[in-house]
Amino acid sequence: MTPMTPVAPVTPDQLAAIPRERLPALLRLMPKAELHIHIEGSLEPELMFKLAERNGVQLGYPSVAALRAAYAFTDLQSFLDIYYAGASVLLTEADFSEMAWAYFERAAADKVVHAEIFFDPQTHIERGVPIETVIKGLGQAARRAQAELGLSAKLILCFLRHLSEADALRTLEAALPWRHHFIGVGLDSSECGHPPEKFARVFARSREAGLHLVAHAGEEGPPAYIEAALDVLQVERIDHGVRCTESPALLLRLAASRTPLTVCPLSNVKLRVFDTLARHNLPALLAAGLCVTVNSDDPAYFGGYLNQNLVETFAALPQLGAAEAYALARNSFEASFVPAAQKAAWVAQLDALFTEFALEGAR
Rank of each mutant, 00 (worst) to 15 (best):
P3E: 12
V7P: 11
E34R: 02
I37T: 11
E46M: 02
A52D: 07
L59R: 06
P62T: 08
D75Y: 08
G86A: 14
S88G: 01
L91I: 11
V113S: 15
H114R: 08
G128L: 12
I131V: 15
V134L: 13
K136G: 09
G139N: 14
E148K: 07
L157S: 05
L163F: 12
A166M: 04
H181L: 15
S190Y: 05
E191K: 03
C192M: 14
G193M: 09
R207W: 01
G210F: 08
L213S: 06
A215V: 03
E219S: 06
G221H: 00
P222L: 10
A224L: 03
E236H: 09
R237L: 07
H240G: 01
H240V: 02
R253G: 15
L277G: 07
L290R: 01
C291Y: 02
T293F: 08
N295S: 13
N295R: 04
D297G: 09
G304W: 06
N307R: 13
N309V: 13
V311P: 06
Q319Y: 00
Q319C: 14
L320I: 09
A323I: 10
N331F: 10
F333S: 10
A335D: 06
A335V: 05
A348F: 03
Q349N: 08
T355I: 14
A358S: 01
A362W: 00
R363S: 12
